[in-house]
Structures are given as structure tokens and as C-alpha cells.
Amino acid sequence: MQQRWAAYGGRSLFVLLSAVPIVAGVSYALLYSLGLTGVMAEGFTLVHWQEILGDAAFWRTLGFSLYVAAVSIGVALGLSLALVLRSPQAYTKGMLSFFIYLPLSIPAIVMAFFIFQLLGKGGWLSRVSHQLGLISALEQFPDWVNDNYGIGIIVAHVIMATPFFTIFFANLYQNERLGEYLHLAATLGANGRQRIFRVAVPVLLRRGLATVFLYFMFVMGSYEIPLLVGSQSVQMVSVRTIQRLQRYNLGDIPEAYAISVAYTVLVAVLLGGLLWYNRKQMGRA
């Protein structure tokens, strides 16, 4: 009897700390965006949704978040796969097996500060370029932070994600005994290029798909890095939402909540797709 109550208690606490905050948060944001709650509540209205869905800036924000995540993850995957496939053992044994973990100890806010001081117009690279005679004035240095292409944001995420994926793929390489598969492929006559692109890369990417996808969503929803090194004219979704919430114009708040709900729906759909794909793959296996 006592055990049964403990089980009920445990599961209730689980629901209370995992699902309740999310359901409460989304419900509140949805009600606010529909004009049903909040200081500006004027009764049920779709006007805030019409405004954000018809606003090109909202779609640009969503598109920009997807673009930053896709480019950051794409570059990081390319670099980490190249590093691991070039020397699979280097990251699990020896000196590098320790040093490769160091970048994981840098929080996003510190990485953003570092990128700002490195790539900014008055940053370290600009100073080095000046000393080397490549530029003669600060203004000549290209806009790599607070720019419309998100270069600073992408570089920051690439620096953070590359060591992560390198460690991840190096361990996968070992766990999946990829070395033996590649040896077998070579025995069957596959050349170097075929071994990499027909065997190694597909195995690593398929096995690591869920992790890659979760990291993609993490980049898409990132806040600190775009806040410090992002542009004001093209913003990522978290920055746009929070800035609208913190403005003095109360009329912006329902729209900020509408963006939150729209973003949550998008991520939920993507996550649902991932779970469906995973289940399908498991069914096949």
C-alpha cells in the first residue's frame, strides 16, 4: 500500500515538474495571444495572430533562425566528420582526448563575448589585420558581428558544436565498430572515397540523427549568442520574442506570446517528425 502511494507521489511530482509548466506556459501564451487574458485583454480576437502571420518580419525571423541552425550544424558536422574520419583514435586516446573536451566548458554567453572581442570591428582580428597592413582603419574591417548574415552567430555556434560532434562521432566510430566495416569495404574493393561517403558518413549520420536534430533545435532557440552578436534588423526567434515582451508598448506583448506559441508548434512538429522517424527506423531494425 505504502509503495503504491509512493509510486503515485513520484509520478505526480514528475507530471508537476515536467508537463504542468509547459502546458501552463503554452496555455497562458495562447490565451494572451487570443486576447483572453492579460492587461490588454479585449475579448476573443485573432487580430494578433493575423498581424504576426501577415508580418514579413516574423517569417524572416523564423527563416533566419532555421538558416543559422542549418548552416551552423552543417559546417560543424562537416568539420567534425572530417576530423574524426581522418584520425578516429585521436579523440579517444592521448592528449587530444582531454583537450577536445575543454571547449564544452565555455558557456554560450562567454562564447558570445569572445566572438564579439575577436571578430568585431575593434576586435582582435581587426587589430592584427591593421598591424599586418591589411587594413588602415577600423571601418575597413568587414562586419562579422551584428551583421545581417549572422556570421558572428554562426561562427560562435560552430566553435561550440564542432568539439561536441567530434567527441560524439569519435565514440560512435568505436561503439559501431566502424573501423571493421571500413576494412571489410576495402577488402570488397571500395576505394577511399567510397569508404568515406558510402559507408562511414551514412552510418555516423544515421546513428547520430536524433542528437544532431536536438542540437539543431538548441541552436534555433538559442538566445545569448544572437543577443550579443546578432543584428537588430534580422533577429532570431528567442531574441525577437523577449525584446517584444520587454518593450514599453503593451500592444507588443500579445504578439510576443503569439510568436512563442507559433515557435513551440513548429518545434513540436519537428520533434514529432523525429520521434516518428525513429520509431520507423526501430521498426525496420
Partner: peptide
């Protein structure tokens, strides 16, 4: 267990924004 993935649907900062009222 799928409930445990719920919080990851939100970015933490957006979760905080939606929970501010509470």
C-alpha cells in the same frame, strides 16, 4: 518518459517568458 521531453520543445528563455505571470 515522452513527457520528460516536453521542456525541450521550448527554448528555456521562451519557457521563462511564458511562465513569468505564474
Amino acid at each position: 518518459l515522452s513527457l520528460a521531453y516536453f521542456p525541450y520543445v521550448f527554448a528555456p528563455v521562451i519557457l521563462a517568458a511564458c511562465l513569468q505571470f505564474f
